[in-house]
Amino acid sequence: MKEFAVEIDNLVKEYSGVEVLKNISMKIPKGKITTILGFSGAGKSTLLKHILGISKPSEGLIKVMGTDLGSLHSKELRDFRRNFGMVFQYAALFDSLSTFENVAFPLREFLSLGNNELHDRVENLLTAVGLEQDSFNLYPHELSGGMRKRVGLARALALRPKIMLYDEPTTGLDPITTKTVNDLIFDTANDQSEHELTSIIISHDVKASLAISDYIAFLESGEVIEYLPVEEFKSSNNSMIKKFIELS
């Protein structure tokens, strides 16, 4: 079943007696951009954590690239996570490290590269996301929100992951930066298309999602209401979705 990057079967997650995720089943295809859309509190972040293996399901199965996450124990799971790259909502940069060091971090951790090679790779990653040399030595608190997101993206791409995850990439950004980020995501997905990079986006920004996604899943109160290719989604008859699209 290698066509799917992520397969979720009957996932149920219960938290303190409340069912946060109710029987979710979906198959996320490889090499495409899939957005999981939904209101705040719909369970998107929780779903993301399950895909990463950070949370364990109360019931159900999650397979990533054919591997059942539940069958891995912690060390294997940790190693497996190198297949992912994640961009957090607020970038989650290490605030004690400079921009350069942040991006270099995964490279230093997992690869033994010579100093020059390391330097070149980091530089390439940073320029690819549109950052200039003069920002390399700045610290996260000296960067703007948009710049931080870019650094986060560069860091996430450092190890050439197979699946990229984006947690609310455009939320809270001004329209221009939103477009920049969106374009970045799009370009990244397509640049890496020879490696079949799968992109999974969690968002409640409908407009941005509709602009770049191939597939959209609509999550509401822990349930998947719709999971369709983007064109079909746009013409969905579901009242909630229609309203969502209207208000965007």
Partner: peptide
Amino acid sequence: GTMKVTEQIDALEVMGIN
């Protein structure tokens, strides 16, 4: 603590670092 609330610890875990 600050690393925890700013998701930096999650970032480490996602990168596969204990």
